[in-house]
Amino acid sequence: MTTDMTDQRSAPGADPGDRAAQMRSTVRFTVNGEMREIEIDNRTTLLDALREHLRLTGTKKGCDHGQCGACTVIVNGRRVNSCLTLAVMQDGHEIETIEGIGAPDALDPMQAAFVEHDGYQCGYCTPGQICSARAVLDEIAAGIPSHVTGDLSARIEITEDEIRERMSGNICRCGAYANMMTAILQVSRGAP
């Protein structure tokens, strides 16, 4: 059971069994529209919960330290690095992974554009790239500025510079950046 304030006070953890129980939690969150409940060690990151407990292995582990973006998923509508957040902190949250974005027979436009333009080589970084790319277009539409945004009071235009800067948290070991750019620009124009 997740220890909340009341549990903590009524169970000060005197006996070692209590202490062991405090190291684990039950978490409930929505993953790709489905309510899931897991019982985990508090140390479990969201990334490990998705991959090892829920067997959603589309989300990848590259560095496990926030440096590569392979683990990017969407939490409550925003992209985050799932390796740097605890699963136990996601109680009640809505999580979307690459598996929820589209399926082989029903690709999301960003997935289709990556396929069409060869926006990958080995494919390891691709789920994170696609989650990020969709979020980048949403962030520009929402008016969130970036390092390369010129006038902070003007509407933000979708440019290659904006996309490049905003995608910098997703590293591609194979260097498929140019084709990803083509794919993202195509989706940004609303082209099929």
Partner: peptide
Amino acid sequence: LAADDRIRRDYGVLTRALVAGASGQLRNM
């Protein structure tokens, strides 16, 4: 914080410093 209208208008240096740090995913957390 970086996107807040008042920060962008009146404390632009703060928006600029924030978006110069880390990545979009990290700034969301």
